[in-house]
Structure formats: C-alpha cells, structure tokens
Simulated assay, not measured.
Amino acid sequence: MAEPPLKPVIQKPPGYRDPSLPAAQSGFRPPPRKPVLPPSFHQRKEKSGFCRVCCCSLCIFLLVLILLVVTGAMVFYFLFDPKFPGFHVQSIRMSRFNVTKKPDGTYLDAATTTRLEVKNPNVKMTYYYGDTEFDVSFGEGGDETAAGTTAVTGFTMGKQSTTSLKVETKASNMLVADDVGNRLRTGHRSKTLPVNVEARTKVGLGVAGLKIGKVAVTVKCDGITMKQLDGGDMPKCVTNMLKWLNID
C-alpha cells in the first residue's frame, strides 16, 4: 500500500510565538521601554541659552571698555602730547683708581663721581621720582666689574625743567682676576675704559594738578668712556619702562 504524500512544511512568519510554549521558553522579549529622564535634563536648553547670553554680554562689555580706554588714551595724547624725560651723561670723574697686585690676588680700589642730566620736555606735565638706586660698573660684553652702588633721594621735575643728579660710588679693596685688573688699568690710562651706569626708580605723572601712580623704570647708560666725554659728547641713556617698553 502506497504511503500518503508528505505535507509541505509551512514556514513560520517572523515574530511567531507558539501558544503551547510557556512565556519563558518562547524567546520573546518585550521592546525596551524609553527611560524616563529626570526634570533636570529637560532644563539644559534653558541653562545653555542663559550662559550664551551671559557670554555675549561679557564680550560686549569688554569691547566697550577697550574702546573707551583707547579713546581716552588718544584724547590724552592729543591734549597733552606726552614725552618721557631724557637722561644724558654729563661727566664721569674718578678721584681714585688703583689696581694693585698682591701675593693673594689683584685688587681694585676706585671712587667714581657721575653726573646725569635729566630733562622734562613737557609743557603740561610734571614728573615725580621716587628714591633712585644707582649701580656703576666697568667693562663691557658681559664682563663687567662692579664699582659700587648708591641711592639718590626722590625729586620732582617741573614743566620744561632740567635736573642734574650727582652719583658717587666706591669700590674698596675688591678682588678681581689678574687679566681683568690689567684691562682695567690699561683702559683707565688710555681713557677708553667703558663705564656703565644703571638707575632703578619709580616715576609718577602730574597732570592738571592730579598725580597718577608711579611705575617702575630702569635707565641704562652703557659703554661711556672718558675720551668720549672729554670730546664734548653727552651720551643719551636708554629707558626701560614696564619691563618691555624701551625709550631712547
């Protein structure tokens, strides 16, 4: 007897679940639920908008402030035409200069008097100087020999005035290298010994009866020789203000 024909296998559609199987074995998993966010997350847009407004307001304020400062500086410049005082070396005198070789080394003994001329070319401004500290040295090219330090009491420079400063320094029994001593002696005899003067002070400004706070200023007069001064020259010094602005 012939066997009945086999029934075709019907493919189960996707997602079919056999009702005879328990839920745990059916392999069906419900779709994940969308997490519920806390209320604080929904306020981020409001906070970011507030921060953006604050940043824009701050930038506008800074731009306006910079514009006001620049405008004020331009108005001040055109009204008063400010010029920084000029420093010149008038003279250098050495009342004592001895280089002595001893069994234990070479020694320098020197007394130096330097005169500086300070001019205020401004018609509408007064300058106020604090106590000024002076350093004097001999030599150049990074091989300077200290020749003493002194201080000058603060002073005031009126409009279009000139002030002369007297700076006296001493170097007593200072030990130097033998070759340095020879160079110092030779340079002194030929009047080609470079003399360096450095002044550190604070300068304030007086305008229309008002005093503006003092700023630190360094004045350097480098490489001045006796021969140069004897020839009638008055070398000009370089002024360093705020550690970056150089004024010749």
Rank of each mutant, 00 (worst) to 15 (best):
K83P: 02
L67N: 13
L62R: 01
H88E: 12
H42W: 13
P103Q: 04
P30Y: 15
S40P: 06
S57Q: 04
T71V: 15
F76A: 02
F78N: 04
R44I: 14
V70D: 07
K34M: 14
E46D: 08
V70H: 07
C59N: 05
Y107S: 01
F41A: 08
V53I: 05
L79K: 07
L68H: 06
D109T: 07
F80N: 00
K34R: 13
F50W: 06
S26V: 13
Q25D: 14
R93G: 10
R93Q: 11
G86A: 07
F28H: 11
A110D: 03
T71F: 02
S91W: 00
C54M: 15
L108H: 05
R33S: 15
L21N: 09
Q43H: 11
P103G: 06
F61H: 13
V53D: 01
S48V: 14
P32M: 04
A111T: 12
C51K: 12
V70G: 13
G49V: 14
S95W: 00
M94I: 15
L58W: 08
P103A: 09
P85C: 05
S95V: 13
R44M: 15
T114N: 00
F76R: 04
L67P: 03
K101I: 13
R52L: 10
I92L: 03
I60K: 07
S57G: 02
P103N: 10
S95N: 07
T114H: 01
V99P: 00
A110C: 11
A23I: 06
S26C: 15
L79E: 13
T106S: 08
L62E: 03
F28C: 05
Y107N: 00
E46W: 11
A73M: 03
L79I: 14
L79D: 06
C51Q: 14
P39M: 09
A24L: 10
T114Q: 01
Y77F: 09
G27D: 06
L65C: 12
T71D: 08
A73C: 04
T71S: 11
L68C: 12
G72A: 15
F76D: 01
M74Q: 06
L67K: 02
G27Q: 03
L21T: 09
K101F: 06
F80A: 03
L62G: 04
L108S: 10
S40M: 07
F41Y: 11
G49R: 03
Y77A: 06
T112V: 08
F41E: 07
N98W: 15
F76K: 00
D104N: 10
L58F: 10
G49T: 08
S57K: 01
S48F: 13
D104F: 09
P103F: 04
L21Q: 09
L21P: 04
F61C: 05
M74Y: 14
K45Y: 10
S40R: 12
M74P: 06
I66H: 15
G49H: 01
